[in-house]
Design a protein around this nucleic acid. Structure first.
Length: 371
DNA sequence: CGTGTTTGACCAGCGC
DNA sequence: GCGCTGGTCAAACACG
């Protein structure tokens, strides 16, 4: 019964992407981006810059990664994103702020690695290591400045997104309302009477973590259950922005999903807050879902791929593998898993690679020549 | 019946 | 103060 329930949940979670996937060829790619005032990290890597300096030379938006079908792994909590502090992404954008990579002293390694995937493959334990090294700073302790330094960047942990709050140009990253606590309070009150003005109290911003994903699916499965609570039209964009909230009790993590007005194939997902739970969906034993690429997020939360497998798949990255990010239930430490697409064969992977290349916007293709 | 989505209304912050 | 916009609420609705 319970198992049944969980499965149902999974189904629900996957509904969106699955349904849409049915009719269309789905190509998804997640990217790390960096904007003037905002840095976004992301999951899989296409052609990562060889060095951080390369990154600096990249356009404001660049792709580091690519994933093909199954919806990309939006960085759930404690995911690969933990390992992708903006510092890396943005290069030396912030002197003095040590990114995860910095702390691990793997900059050089990364510079020589063929890709971030390779790097991860070479440093498979980074996840847990990072888990130990960094303690996500609670949102409440975050500085209220417009810039949040990166700690392990994850949706649930303190990702960091620096965003100049007043940058009107970046709608996607506008300041958000206060934190979870306040949010919860709101929930307890009736709408009309809530929110006693906190004029003097400036809104505290949750750490936010955004990433771009090239996908035809708006709402990507990331292993968590989300409930949509609103949708608004976005100024200067034909695409609406959807607001989601984590359905886990007490968890006030929110995320916004919208399509880029510049490139409709790009989905910008912004996470806000920290999950206070490992994963809402922990289908112990529902291993089968992993094999089913469609169950990407929902099913992956409890999977821990053996390191060997991880490495093996990691090398497939160049052929656009799917990256699955998992969160260990018990340790709450990030782990990674990779799985192939439903109908993947070496040839299909290669094909995908080509497709991905095709769909990558020119701006995103401005990747450093590295081969 | 439980869960998730839709959608119009409302609230808050900000700029003018 | 006013209007605009982003964000949120919650009733109504859809779906399995």
């Amino acid at each position: 019964m319970n198992e049944m329930k969980e499965n149902n949940n999974i189904s629900s979670v996957c509904t969106n992407s699955m349904e849409k996937r049915e009719g269309k060829k789905e190509l998804t790619r997640t990217t790390i981006l960096k904007t003037e005032n905002f840095t976004m990290a992301n999951s899989s890597f296409i052609t990562p810059p060889a060095t951080t300096s390369d990154i600096d030379q990249m356009p404001s938006v660049f792709a580091l990664s690519t994933t093909a079908t199954p919806p990309p792994p939006p960085p759930p909590l404690n995911s690969i994103f933990d390992m992708m502090p903006c510092d890396i992404i943005g290069g030396d954008q912030k002197a003095g702020s040590l990114g995860f990579i910095d702390l691990l002293d793997i900059n050089q390694d990364f510079g020589t690695a063929a890709s971030l995937f390779d790097w991860f493959a070479q440093n498979p334990i980074v996840g847990s290591q990072q888990q130990q090294t960094f303690v996500p700073s609670p949102a409440s302790t975050l500085p209220e400045t417009s810039e949040v330094l990166n700690n392990p960047a994850t949706p649930n942990s303190s990702a960091s997104i620096s965003s100049s709050s007043n940058e009107a140009g970046n709608d996607a990253f506008q300041q958000v309302k206060t934190g979870d606590q306040e949010e919860k309070h709101d929930h307890d009150k009736t709408k009309k009477q809530l929110k006693p003005k906190k004029k003097n109290q400036k809104r505290q911003r949750e750490p936010r973590f955004a990433f771009m994903t090239k996908s035809e699916v708006d709402h990507l499965d990331d292993g968590f259950r989300w409930r949509k609570y609103g949708q608004k039209a976005v100024k200067n964009s034909p695409y609406p922005r959807s607001y989601y909230r984590c359905t886990s009790a007490g968890c006030g993590v929110k995320k916004r999903v919208e399509r880029s007005s510049d490139d409709s194939s790009i989905v910008v997902t912004t996470y806000e807050g920290q999950h206070i739970h490992p994963s809402p969906i922990t289908p112990r034993g529902s291993v089968g879902i992993l094999a089913d690429s469609t169950g990407f997020g929902a099913a992956t939360s409890s999977f821990v791929i053996p390191q060997t497998q991880y490495q093996q798949h990691a090398y497939m990255y160049s052929s656009s593998p799917s990256l699955n990010i998992t969160t260990s239930n018990t340790s709450f430490s990030p782990t990674f898993s990779f799985h192939q697409r439903r109908s993947d064969s070496p040839s299909s992977l290669l094909r995908d690679h080509g497709l991905l290349q095709d769909i990558v916007p020119s701006q995103m293709r401005k990747e450093p020549k590295e081969e």
